[in-house]
Design a protein around this nucleic acid. Structure first.
Lengths: 70, 70
DNA sequence: ACACAAAGAGCAATATGCTGCATTATTGTA
DNA sequence: TACAATAATGCAGCATATTGCTCTTTGTGT
């Protein structure tokens, strides 16, 4: 998973849900400044931060064994 | 995904590969102290940290839309 | 039991994520 | 165009992850 994925995914998903960055910040209890950092790709977020945002967006992080062929 | 999962997964996976915490630290270019924190569950790691470790362990993080029924 | 390797834990220094505030830019709508 | 809502950016302070150092504890093999 790359930062680009997160950047795009969060923004896409947020728009699907029809909420603003500010809404997402309030709902996830994360600073607006951090949401913006996430969506602009300038972020190396902590796991807890990512989880909070993902919970609101209905996304989840999972770990899996890497496929050989990719 | 919860911290518990990471804690267990990393340790399990590392042992499957037959390497020590120190080996993992060197291979992933992460401080030994951080590896220990990860495996003892006292960690809210940064995404980059998790990625480095997972790369060595042949694991990967992926994002998916949460299932309704779980 | 003994020796050695591996793992766990406390501490302080450093790096950097997270935050709010203020400002500017962009986008959407009437 | 004008206005409002949303988004982007710079900055500084705070919070905390990361790190090496050191010591202790646990595990493994002889």
């Amino acid at each position: 998973m790359h930062y680009e994925d997160i950047k795009i995914l969060i923004k896409q998903r947020r728009r699907i849900l029809g909420i603003s960055q500010n809404d997402l910040a309030l709902l996830s209890n994360i600073g607006l400044r951090t949401i913006k950092a996430l969506e602009s790709g300038k972020a190396n977020p902590r796991l807890a931060t990512l989880n909070k945002v993902f919970n609101v967006l209905g996304l989840e992080l999972i770990i899996r064994i890497k496929d050989i062929d990719e």
